[in-house]
Simulated scan of single mutants.
Amino acid sequence: MMDLDEIDLKLLQALSQDATLSAGALGRRFGLSQPAAWRRIKRLWSEGALSHRRLVLDHEALGFGVTVFLGVKLATKGRVSLEDFERAVTAIPEVQTVEHILGVYDYRLRIVARDISDFERVLRRRIMALPGVGDVEANVLLSEERLPGPLGGAGAK
């Protein structure tokens, strides 16, 4: 585990909300020079606290008005069936995330679709045709709030 001070936590929180912030802007916000802020950010990258920059698409604005979380229980378990399922499911463009989980279901998928009938098409023609698929359970997303995560309260005083 990394040793993070209050400034590191503030930098991580700010970057998790807006990864486009410059070292200069972050330095001004937290009382650092631009080079000092850059050194800290570079260290956070090199030590693995930061690993990706992602662009978040507005699915609804792009015509995908329905998000469904699908629990998938594989009918047959084993290393080969897991790998086959993962390889096949990641090739489906409507599947946004694939999470291998512990519990009643083996996987949790986040799927976007234009509407419910489009989701039904994806479910019937793509998901249910995947190798090893047994039981599924769909939960339609009604609303979503982005929570700050474990660093949300840290350094926000």
Rank of each mutant, 00 (worst) to 15 (best):
residue 14 A to S: 15
residue 133 V to Q: 01
residue 58 D to L: 10
residue 117 S to E: 13
residue 39 R to N: 11
residue 17 Q to T: 07
residue 24 G to N: 04
residue 90 T to R: 11
residue 105 Y to N: 04
residue 52 H to D: 14
residue 8 D to R: 01
residue 74 L to R: 02
residue 86 E to N: 05
residue 21 L to A: 07
residue 101 I to R: 12
residue 145 E to Q: 13
residue 108 R to E: 05
residue 105 Y to M: 09
residue 133 V to H: 01
residue 135 D to K: 11
residue 102 L to M: 10
residue 143 S to G: 06
residue 13 Q to C: 05
residue 110 R to P: 00
residue 24 G to V: 00
residue 44 L to T: 04
residue 36 A to W: 00
residue 37 A to K: 00
residue 80 V to A: 14
residue 60 E to F: 08
residue 92 I to V: 11
residue 103 G to S: 10
residue 36 A to M: 11
residue 46 S to L: 12
residue 119 F to H: 02
residue 103 G to Q: 10
residue 38 W to A: 12
residue 139 N to Y: 09
residue 145 E to T: 13
residue 132 G to N: 05
residue 48 G to K: 04
residue 19 A to K: 12
residue 9 L to I: 13
residue 63 G to W: 08
residue 69 F to Y: 12
residue 60 E to L: 10
residue 134 G to V: 03
residue 29 R to P: 02
residue 27 G to E: 02
residue 84 D to N: 15
residue 110 R to D: 00
residue 35 P to Q: 10
residue 145 E to S: 09
residue 90 T to W: 13
residue 107 Y to H: 04
residue 47 E to S: 15
residue 140 V to D: 05
residue 115 D to L: 06
residue 105 Y to H: 07
residue 4 L to C: 05
residue 127 I to L: 14
residue 147 L to R: 09
residue 13 Q to H: 12
residue 123 L to Y: 08
residue 27 G to T: 05
residue 133 V to N: 00
residue 96 Q to T: 04
residue 138 A to M: 11
residue 67 T to Y: 02
residue 127 I to M: 08
residue 52 H to F: 13
residue 1 M to Y: 06
residue 124 R to D: 09
residue 77 K to L: 10
residue 73 K to M: 10
residue 142 L to G: 09
residue 70 L to V: 14
residue 108 R to K: 14
residue 83 E to S: 15
residue 118 D to C: 05
residue 10 K to C: 01
residue 67 T to S: 13
residue 96 Q to I: 03
residue 51 S to M: 11
residue 94 E to G: 09
residue 97 T to N: 10
residue 88 A to T: 06
residue 27 G to C: 09
residue 39 R to Y: 14
residue 33 S to V: 09
residue 40 R to C: 03
residue 84 D to R: 15
residue 117 S to P: 03
residue 40 R to L: 06
residue 136 V to R: 00
residue 55 L to W: 13
residue 112 V to L: 07
residue 51 S to A: 15
residue 68 V to S: 03
residue 15 L to R: 03
residue 120 E to V: 10
residue 126 R to C: 05
residue 68 V to Y: 04
residue 40 R to K: 12
residue 65 G to Y: 07
residue 64 F to H: 08
residue 143 S to A: 15
residue 74 L to E: 02
residue 25 A to D: 15
residue 30 F to Y: 12
residue 46 S to A: 13
residue 34 Q to L: 03
residue 18 D to Y: 06
residue 101 I to M: 13
residue 118 D to N: 15
residue 7 I to A: 00
residue 109 L to C: 03
residue 2 M to C: 04
residue 49 A to G: 08
residue 56 V to E: 07
residue 41 I to F: 00
residue 112 V to C: 03
residue 5 D to A: 04
residue 63 G to C: 11
residue 75 A to L: 13
residue 121 R to T: 09
residue 88 A to I: 09
residue 145 E to M: 14
residue 24 G to E: 03
residue 81 S to F: 08
residue 134 G to D: 05
residue 7 I to Q: 01
residue 54 R to I: 14
residue 32 L to D: 01
residue 5 D to E: 05
residue 30 F to V: 02
residue 109 L to P: 00
residue 9 L to P: 00
residue 143 S to H: 12
residue 44 L to F: 04
residue 8 D to I: 02
